[in-house]
Design a protein around this nucleic acid. Sequence first.
DNA 1: GATGAATGAGCCTTCATTCAT
DNA 2: AATGAATGAAGGCTCATTCAT
Lengths: 208, 208, 208, 208
Amino acid sequence: MPKLGMSEIRRPQLIRATMRVIHEVGLPNATVAMIGRKAGISPSIINHYFGGKSGLLEATMRSVLKDLSIAVVSRLQKVDKGDIAGRIEAIVGGNFDHKQVDPMVVKTWLAFWAQAMHDKALFRLQRVNEQRLLSHLRIELKRVVPEHEALFLATTIAALIDGIWLRGALNPQGINSQLAQQTIQDYLISKNIIHLAKQRQSEQKAGH
Amino acid sequence: MPKLGMSEIRRPQLIRATMRVIHEVGLPNATVAMIGRKAGISPSIINHYFGGKSGLLEATMRSVLKDLSIAVVSRLQKVDKGDIAGRIEAIVGGNFDHKQVDPMVVKTWLAFWAQAMHDKALFRLQRVNEQRLLSHLRIELKRVVPEHEALFLATTIAALIDGIWLRGALNPQGINSQLAQQTIQDYLISKNIIHLAKQRQSEQKAGH
Amino acid sequence: MPKLGMSEIRRPQLIRATMRVIHEVGLPNATVAMIGRKAGISPSIINHYFGGKSGLLEATMRSVLKDLSIAVVSRLQKVDKGDIAGRIEAIVGGNFDHKQVDPMVVKTWLAFWAQAMHDKALFRLQRVNEQRLLSHLRIELKRVVPEHEALFLATTIAALIDGIWLRGALNPQGINSQLAQQTIQDYLISKNIIHLAKQRQSEQKAGH
Amino acid sequence: MPKLGMSEIRRPQLIRATMRVIHEVGLPNATVAMIGRKAGISPSIINHYFGGKSGLLEATMRSVLKDLSIAVVSRLQKVDKGDIAGRIEAIVGGNFDHKQVDPMVVKTWLAFWAQAMHDKALFRLQRVNEQRLLSHLRIELKRVVPEHEALFLATTIAALIDGIWLRGALNPQGINSQLAQQTIQDYLISKNIIHLAKQRQSEQKAGH
DNA sequence: GATGAATGAGCCTTCATTCAT
DNA sequence: AATGAATGAAGGCTCATTCAT
């Protein structure tokens, strides 16, 4: 077990402080002074660990996206490869994970989204995240519908996920995680995806 | 007597310049100096007409939302009251109006959305806009499905609209207006809404 | 009777507005915009009539000092040349004239006093005023005491007058005009001036 | 570890620079840029140490008033409690202390007096100062004359002090400290205070 | 590693003044 | 005569960053 340097302590500490400050005053109004104060340490040290404010912001966004990725991947790992409906549910569920719908995270996420339009580094991170969601969905959907339809469905589901997040960001009551998942489940049922998925699962079991 | 009526010229001019600057550098980086330069007039005059930067931003957001409202309402006026499917299409279509999917407008809209989380004046404007969309949709949907289902559908459609907008904001290709409307149309067909609407329309015609 | 041009209307109107604004926010915070608004006319017009802000301020101070001068001179005219005590009382009384102890006037006067230290035009006006007060007092005092004592007394009385004014400027209750005059009268009695003055008056009457 | 204790160096340095700038251009024209330049440091640092321009001005006035207080108190400490005439002289002398009649200090003092009429924080400081002078004088005077007369005398002496200061502020030759004290001494003699004080002192000595 | 000191660039705003009508 | 339009200079303040300790 490696000895923990200050770096391993300070970096998460500052990233968390950044998110809290963004939650409170918004990204444009977040200053290194506020973040330092919130973390209980000198603002100067941000330069030491992140090379500047933008470095800290990038690291913070990376952290947010990584948590999202983990939420999805860890759920996928618990679901059988053959259970297509379960896997789609896992992907959607990961996006509405308890940690992900925390108002602080939601606001941070939206703040970065807006900022990403004018910051190359953030833009790249955002694109990767978008593609990853689409990719996860398409992989599963392609197993039950033709490729072009899979793309259409994946795009629609992604739009639903982001739309619910977006509206939740401004809603004082925040995101209703359960309702969100039901909404998407309902969409999949309407599009007959769940039925097809179960059917395919049975076939494969029989095929073995 | 001074030159009169400059207010009607300057205000839209400055609002448009604001949107262009937000499009280029983002809301947090937009300065009154840039906006003034873009409009070809002195930055000082912003105070003359809007009482300050925040006044200009609020007016800009108000303008964006008003354009959106007009796009929806003008389409609704062209559709027969009895044509429920047509009315829903009008509402959706208004949100993907040519002027509304202009990348400049989309970015401005998202920038304000992010900002609204920390600015009371913008927040109120945003809420009104959200509610208006939901309201428009529910009025039509209630005519074909029970109230609670109408609310669910309206919320889902709104999420789809916003989600598509949001993803379009970061997509280099922008929003594909036609595809967006097809996506939502497809959802409505899957939910059997279009069918029910046509049916209701026939009934009413027969009723006369 | 000459027809009144707008100049004769506007100038006093603006001067009065200036004093009211100084009373409210102080000289450093008084802007031409405020003054114009208070007078109910466009600020631009100040340049028309006074050639700029400093011209207006100078005219205002001139007006304040002229009113003071009138208050003194008009009282002197009502007192017999031979009544030395009465003449001194007139000079003092003029400085505590009803119009002069108006809080608005007091504040304006003090504001200009402070400003005069760094403004040549105001400085000259102020000096003339100072000298005039001293001169008035010395002329009368020389008639009852030797020249060098007259100067000393005049200086002391002037200091008392200004000191009372100054303290009154900051006192929420303002200047107590009657008490002020009693204070100086008491000083003159203590210095035996009143007695000497009455004595001289009797001598002169007898001399005729 | 950073350079510590700069606060004790910077604060007096900036306060002194403030007074010098006020002396040169007046309070309304004094800018943080000028003050910083005069002190040889960056204007930004004024915020660091005083939280803004008004904080600096308040600290400057506080400094001026404290110096005045020290001048009076230190003189009082050197005078025997029983020597009433000496104590009054000490109070007056403190107000015309060498440091206090420095033209720079006099102008600063007057500038603040004018400003205090429209600034709550400065107003309070000024009132405390006024009351302190009156209080010092009344305490001594009450020992030789009835209370109501003590108040009258104290007020008159205070007016004389302030009047001499005020006139000195605009007089190119400044305040003649010696003449000022003589003037007030002369007043006290005329009012028989010195005589009464000496008498009381003799009584008390005899009483022991 | 950590921090207070210090800086300089930049921003919003105010304001006196000028101009066209 | 009078005014709204418009400007440009300047001021206070914020803030990310660098530096010495």
